[in-house]
Design a protein around this nucleic acid. Structure first.
Lengths: 215, 215
DNA sequence: GTCCATTGTTACTTGCGGTAACCCGAGTCT
DNA sequence: AGACTCGGGTTACCGCAAGTAACAATGGAC
């Protein structure tokens, strides 16, 4: 029962409006960080709050809509790095670097994505521990787990191990990147090298310092 | 000049009161999560908001005061695991396990510590990227970096490398722990084993799956 | 022309963090 | 004793944010 070309036209019109709103929201969020107010966003878009709510339901909805765009872009970058036909170590380096380039060039976007600011939703009581600061990180972890599981021969329990590794590596990348971004203690290349060394087992093979406890 | 033993007595009295308030706050935070309201906490303590503010300045102050207790306890546990006179690999396993035991037994505390909920402070504009979800994680990263740097011979740039590794490992532990806690895909022992394998360079040595791209 | 969906408004409610002004009881000084 | 101050306590408020009616205007469909 679609109403001739009406619904189609209207459809694209509201879609376009929605995109405009998202772009306004993005400008404000990039300026004010994740605690940008709905009022400010509405003002930037030249309108008032209630239409924002009509389009996105609540603040979480807006932020989620905003997030998917950047998330998708980042994921695409990571996937191409992850699929490059080179040595495994080079591939790992390229992937780490892709992530770091992303957070380096758009730190405000990064900050926004990693901290979607209170998208409360589920029941309050239970054990929804750590739901914060990371739908994106969890997704990255799962993606990486899939790649690992698809390409490496991890034997029995391979699935389990791949997921642990996926989330672990993503967490390592994130924490190191976060720290690096705020302290800038070295070049990006150096950081990538150190991290890859860590993943390549240097922690196991490096020698004790003379005078240490000798274990 | 000090008023006889008066100020001393009063001192301990206010200290005790402060502890009582902190305990009330803890009960509420453990029940409501990090977004527990000051009103609720005051009610639990049987008083009203302004005295909370007299004692702790603002919400961030209260939460910081609450955090140091648990943080100190956790740090103490980690340090003893980190100082055990055993093989390096066993020490790493023990440390990972100590952390995981902590988050497993008190998930609400863990959630609270990892997400101190908006302790805004610094100027709004700038590049304070990623300040969220981690004064504790950053501290852990620095502590671990120090241990690494003190005990291992990392050659030139050893300091830099130790810090990257410290933050990276902590991030890995945190992300994997967070994911594990909410999905419980395996036993704690298995998780520790997988993570240690990862740190021990298994990612580098494991074989490609047959039919893979062969790199 | 009439209908209805969509875009927009103003004006409100609720709940939060935080503060100002005042109250009162217990010890202190003279 | 009486004045004095000091710290724990209260009520009542401000400002601001999210979110919600309830109502106005525009414009295509029939």
């Amino acid at each position: 029962m679609d109403n001739t070309q009406h619904s189609g036209r209207r459809q694209t019109a509201t879609e376009r409006r929605r995109r405009e709103l998202l772009e306004a929201a993005e400008r404000i969020v990039l300026r004010d960080g994740p605690e940008a107010s709905m009022n400010a966003i509405a003002a930037e878009a030249g309108i008032t709050k209630p239409i924002l709510y009509r389009h996105f339901g609540d603040k979480g909805g807006l932020y989620r809509a905003l997030a998917v765009r950047h998330t998708d872009a980042l994921l695409a970058n990571l996937r191409t790095a992850l699929d490059a036909p080179v040595l495994r170590r080079d591939r790992v380096e390229a992937t780490l670097d892709a992530y770091l380039v992303a957070i380096e060039t758009r730190p405000q976007v990064y900050r926004f994505l990693m901290h979607p600011a209170e998208q409360q939703g589920q029941a309050e009581s239970g054990f929804d521990v750590g739901r914060h600061s990371a739908p994106l990180l969890r997704r990255l972890g799962e993606e990486l787990a899939k790649v690992i599981s698809d390409r490496l021969d991890l034997g029995p329990e391979g699935e389990e191990r791949a997921r642990v590794w996926g989330h672990g590596i993503v967490g390592m990348m994130h924490a190191a990147g976060d720290w690096w971004l705020r302290e800038r203690p070295c070049s990006r290349e150096k950081l990538v090298e150190h991290l890859t060394d860590l993943l390549w087992g240097q922690l196991a093979t490096v020698k004790d310092l003379a005078g240490g406890t000798g274990f």
